[in-house]
Simulated assay, not measured.
Amino acid sequence: MELFLRSWAALRTAVADLSDEDLARPSGCAGWLVRDLVCHLVIDAQDVLITLVTPTEAATTRTAASYWEVADAPPSGDDPLDALTVRLAAAYGEPWLLKFHLDDVGSAAGRAAELADPALRVSTRDVVLTAGDYLHAYVMEWTLHHLDLVAHLPKAPRPPAEALAGARALLEEIADAAFPASWTDEDALLVGTGRRAATPEENAELAAAGVRIPLVLG
């Protein structure tokens, strides 16, 4: 729960500090500008709010790790829902409106998470998991998208160290293998999820560690 709050607060702060020019730069997500990614975060925040008020008596079917499904290939950027996000982002017109909406909905999502009972079972995407596991799964979402946000913004703040470490640990649980200990958490996340190509040396280390990449999460 604490990692969710810290990673989400850091991401929202990074967005709040963006200039209009920053929002028009490419993000680390294929086919999306930074403003498109911010629009996606608004939708994510709405999903968090909806899920936390969708309790169920059904038995849990997923954990924080198994919540994520591993796809065969990274998104190409031409998915209809991705295109819809681009149109929604453009519809805001003034960049400050988009940032305001994220701050408004994002703050509410943070408060809802802080008030949630970690043991509460919730339903989302046709699966059931505890609120604690659901919020822990979102540490991965916030941290990876924070890296996407700053991919072409070298002066922007990076994700907090504890969020990077938490997301790496969850990614290793998903992979059922540990990334080389010499790797930084950021490199493990970027290379592990296919956001950066591995060097020949890194590929050799991954092979020795038994880690298969990329782990495309969806």
Rank of each mutant, 00 (worst) to 15 (best):
R12D: 05
A30K: 13
Q46F: 04
S76I: 06
R125I: 05
T130Y: 11
E205M: 13
P74T: 11
V139I: 10
V105P: 00
A24S: 15
P118A: 11
I50G: 09
A14H: 05
L164E: 02
E205I: 03
L33S: 13
A208Y: 04
R111Q: 13
P160K: 00
G31P: 03
W8Y: 07
G132I: 09
A209K: 09
K155D: 15
A83D: 11
L190N: 04
A45V: 02
C29S: 08
A119L: 08
V211F: 08
V128S: 04
R125S: 14
L97I: 04
G218I: 05
V34W: 00
L190K: 13
D126L: 12
G194I: 11
A165S: 14
W68D: 00
V127M: 10
A71G: 09
A10G: 13
M1Y: 02
D104N: 11
A24P: 02
F179M: 10
P180N: 13
A89P: 00
L129T: 07
L164W: 00
E69K: 11
L23A: 08
R111H: 10
S123E: 15
T199G: 08
E57C: 05
A109N: 03
A178G: 04
V216H: 07
V38D: 01
T63C: 06
A91K: 13
W142R: 09
W183K: 12
R195M: 11
A151M: 11
R212N: 09
L18T: 14
S182L: 12
G106A: 09
S123V: 09
D117T: 06
A45N: 10
S182Q: 13
F100I: 04
Y134H: 10
F179P: 00
C29K: 01
D78L: 09
R195I: 05
